[in-house]
Structures are given as structure tokens and as C-alpha cells.
Computed example of a mutant assay.
Amino acid sequence: MRLAELSERSGVPTATIKYYLREGLLEPGRQLNATTAEYDEEHLRRLRLVRAMIHIARVPVATVREVLGHVDDDSLGRTMRLGAALWALPQVPEPDAEDEHVVRARLEVDRLLETVGWSNAQALVTISPAYRSLVVAVATFRRLGYDWSPELIASYARLMHQAAVLDLDFMDTHPSEAEKVETAVAGAIFVEPVLQALHRLAQEEESARRYGFE
């Protein structure tokens, strides 16, 4: 397809597509002559992802470029490729290592990983942004004075493992390595709000079952 058709099918203006091409967010098309290039379905798929990351998720262009660089890095195995792409997304800042709540939360999270048998996650604790996010969340909860038991957190962790199985099962239905990692990146950005919404709807449903509408 030519640029005009790519624009029409994606809903992205041609000027924006040209900008994405200049910024390295989209691979150049196959050059037909000095002024015309041809694009394919892979360009269309990637263009839609880039557009959504920038205009819906508000991910900065430089971050999108970094994420997609990891998506396309076929020198990495799938786990590292996926991890690098996800870790490049905006993350929470490093917590204060001397904060007493952070120190206790870090120990609690380490015990949690051991309890649920996430040995691979334990091996990544020094570099995984997800680990850092969990420590910050637990520390904040403790700072507010909530007594969230380790058993309850472990129960949530097991539910999230079931969600992760569904995520990767879906990811594996895609043919190429780049598409698999793209799907995981899209899931991290766009499926997590779905999970949050389902969680809140489930709370509302359970509340109505237990207590009625009075």
C-alpha cells in the first residue's frame, strides 16, 4: 500500500506518519522510486501501536523509540526482550532506601516472592521496575496504617499469576517474535486499565450481593 492508503487505513495523518518515520518509530517502506515507497500490514500494525502509545497512553516519543528498539532486538531471548521492552516504559522512581517503611516493605516483598514460589522474580529484584513498584505500594500501605496481612498479599499474587498465564497464552498466539512482544507491551499499557476496571466492578457486584443496595 502507498502512504495515502496507510494513512486512510490507520486513521493517522500522512504528516504524522512522516514524523514517525523521521523519528525511527516506523520502519521505512520499500522504495519504489525516488519519491514513492510501499508499506505492508506490519507497518499498519506498528503504526497503530505507536499512535496508541503516544496519543492514548501519553508515552513520550523517546520512550516509544526505546521500547520499540527492544521489541525489534532479535539478539535477545524472548524473556529478556520482553523484560527490556516493558522496563523501558515509565516507572515509579527509586524509593528512599533508608525509609523505615521501605526497608520493611522490601523484606516483606522478598518473603512474598519466596512464599508464592516466584524464584525467577527473586533473581530480578535488583533491576525489575515491577519489584520496585510493589515495594513502594506496600510501603505506602503500611505508612497509612493498614494491616494488610502477608497471606492476603500472597492470595492476590496467585490471582495475578493466573492473569499472567492468560497474558502469555494470548501472546503466544501471534506468529512473529516482534508481534509477541508488541502484544505484551500493548497489554502492559492498555490491559491493566481493563483489569483495574474489572476489579472495581467485581467489588461493586460483591458488595451488592453481601449488603444489598441500602
Results as ranks from 00 to 15, higher is better:
1 M>C: 08
4 A>E: 13
6 L>F: 08
6 L>T: 10
13 P>S: 03
15 A>K: 11
15 A>E: 09
16 T>F: 00
16 T>S: 02
18 K>N: 06
18 K>W: 02
23 E>L: 05
26 L>D: 13
29 G>F: 07
31 Q>S: 08
34 A>T: 14
35 T>V: 15
38 E>T: 13
39 Y>C: 13
39 Y>R: 08
39 Y>I: 15
42 E>M: 10
43 H>Y: 05
44 L>Y: 04
44 L>W: 05
45 R>Q: 15
47 L>C: 06
49 L>E: 02
50 V>I: 09
50 V>H: 03
52 A>R: 14
53 M>F: 02
54 I>G: 00
54 I>R: 13
57 A>I: 02
59 V>H: 05
60 P>R: 14
61 V>F: 07
63 T>Q: 01
64 V>H: 00
65 R>H: 12
66 E>P: 00
67 V>Y: 00
71 V>T: 01
72 D>W: 01
74 D>E: 13
74 D>Q: 13
80 M>P: 01
81 R>V: 03
82 L>W: 05
83 G>E: 07
84 A>Y: 06
85 A>K: 08
86 L>R: 03
87 W>C: 03
87 W>L: 01
88 A>L: 02
90 P>Q: 04
90 P>H: 04
93 P>L: 04
94 E>V: 07
96 D>K: 06
98 E>K: 07
100 E>P: 15
101 H>W: 12
103 V>F: 05
104 R>C: 00
106 R>V: 03
107 L>R: 12
108 E>W: 09
108 E>H: 11
110 D>F: 04
111 R>I: 01
113 L>K: 01
114 E>N: 05
114 E>T: 12
115 T>W: 11
116 V>K: 13
120 N>Y: 11
121 A>L: 09
121 A>D: 15
124 L>H: 13
124 L>W: 13
125 V>H: 08
127 I>E: 15
129 P>A: 09
131 Y>H: 14
133 S>R: 14
136 V>T: 15
136 V>G: 01
137 A>W: 05
138 V>E: 00
139 A>Q: 06
140 T>V: 05
142 R>V: 08
142 R>S: 14
143 R>T: 05
144 L>D: 09
145 G>N: 08
146 Y>S: 07
149 S>C: 06
152 L>R: 11
155 S>L: 14
155 S>P: 00
156 Y>Q: 05
158 R>N: 06
159 L>M: 11
159 L>K: 07
162 Q>D: 14
163 A>R: 03
165 V>H: 08
167 D>T: 07
167 D>F: 01
168 L>T: 13
168 L>G: 08
169 D>T: 14
169 D>E: 13
174 H>S: 06
177 E>Q: 09
178 A>F: 00
179 E>Q: 14
181 V>M: 08
183 T>I: 10
184 A>Q: 07
185 V>E: 03
187 G>F: 03
188 A>M: 09
190 F>H: 04
192 E>W: 12
193 P>E: 09
197 A>V: 05
198 L>W: 07
198 L>M: 12
199 H>Y: 07
202 A>E: 01
204 E>V: 10
207 S>D: 09
208 A>Q: 11
209 R>I: 11
211 Y>M: 06
212 G>D: 05
213 F>T: 11
213 F>W: 04
